[in-house]
Simulated scan of single mutants.
Amino acid sequence: MTIDAPTGGGIAKTSLHDREQSSYVDWPAIIAGIVLASAISLVLISFGSAVGLNFLDFGYGNEPNPIFVGIAAALWFLWVQISSYMAGGYLTGRLRRRYFDANEDESDLRDGAHGLLVWAGSAILGTIIAVNGIGAAANTIGSAAATVTNAASNVSEGAAEAVDPNAYFIDTMFRSNQPADPAAARDEAGRIFAQAALGDGTVPEADRAYLANVVAVNAGVPPEEAQARVDQAIAGIDNARQQAEDAARIARNTAIIGAFLLAASLLVSAIGAFWAAQKGGNHRDNNTVHPGVFRRF
């Protein structure tokens, strides 16, 4: 049995037997859309990277505003993602074989579903490429970390003692006002700072006074200058710790905002791919052409 269906220029006959043996999903059209979306995304992201690096001139002048750079990069990525998925969805909708066993609303829904499959396939492909790139970077970082670990193996015992709280408490029992070996004095000072780092980063007043006395005795400077040196060293450590905390907080907030924007852009891209695929299907059914753009030469 066959069904006669209008196709704009004539009558097409669709076999019900063939319809029952096939699927509504037109995978060749979907793959074509995925390829187009991935290619457009690659080209535009490469172009955007080139333009962005052109603005990052580290040779002279003021450094670029990181907020401006981040906003510009996010907007460019959003536009690239949406436009590439819409292009792939439109191509799939235009190429999809329509079976005339449904009304126009059902046909539009099937076209849009093909656009969503293009969106999903492109997103998965992009994720695989990104994960492979991250894996390669992780391997490189791992190799570098192994090299650093081997280079630091000779001082590992000293580092372990520096963070050993027992060593700090043992030092308090043998403190002396007499000049000590400079290396031993430096090691003890390191253990005092390490013990403070295990808490809130505050060096107790007793340790401050002891450090000032050790500096005065071993460096041969007045007590006031020794105390100033200790205070300056503690302030520098506190400042470095605060900067590290600020950097970690900024990195965390950036990761949260980036993940939210990525999810939002993917959602908008899915809607765009669905709509573009429906538009492509409508142009397919109406034999729509674009004079001056798609024409024979």
Rank of each mutant, 00 (worst) to 15 (best):
R186C: 07
G272C: 07
F169K: 12
A32C: 06
A276C: 07
A251V: 00
N287T: 03
Y90F: 15
R186M: 15
Y85A: 14
L53Q: 13
R208C: 05
H283F: 02
I129F: 11
M173S: 09
W79F: 12
S83P: 04
D57L: 09
S83H: 04
A259D: 05
F274D: 04
D18V: 02
I31W: 03
V69T: 10
N62E: 11
R186N: 14
F260G: 14
G133E: 00
V131K: 06
V69P: 03
F47E: 09
A39R: 02
N282C: 01
A137T: 14
D187S: 15
A145M: 14
G115Q: 06
L36T: 08
A212Y: 03
G52S: 14
A263T: 07
I256N: 10
V131F: 11
Y168R: 06
D101Y: 13
S15D: 10
L198P: 04
T92R: 08
R241P: 01
G142M: 11
L75W: 04
R252C: 01
D207L: 08
I192P: 05
V203H: 03
I40M: 09
N213L: 11
G93V: 01
H283N: 05
A73I: 06
A37H: 02
D111F: 11
N218F: 02
I30L: 05
V155M: 02
A152I: 00
A189P: 08
E63R: 12
A247C: 00
A184S: 08
V217P: 05
L117A: 14
A29F: 02
A264F: 15
V214S: 05
V214D: 03
D18I: 02
V293H: 05
R97K: 15
V268I: 12
R97H: 15
L198N: 09
N54S: 12
I250P: 00
A197Y: 04
M1W: 06
I45K: 13
D207I: 11
E63C: 01
A276F: 08
L116K: 06
N239L: 13
R296L: 14
P28T: 09
L262H: 01
P291V: 10
L56G: 00
R208D: 05
A184W: 00
G61H: 10
Y60I: 15
F294T: 09
V293S: 09
S176W: 02
N253R: 14
A162S: 10
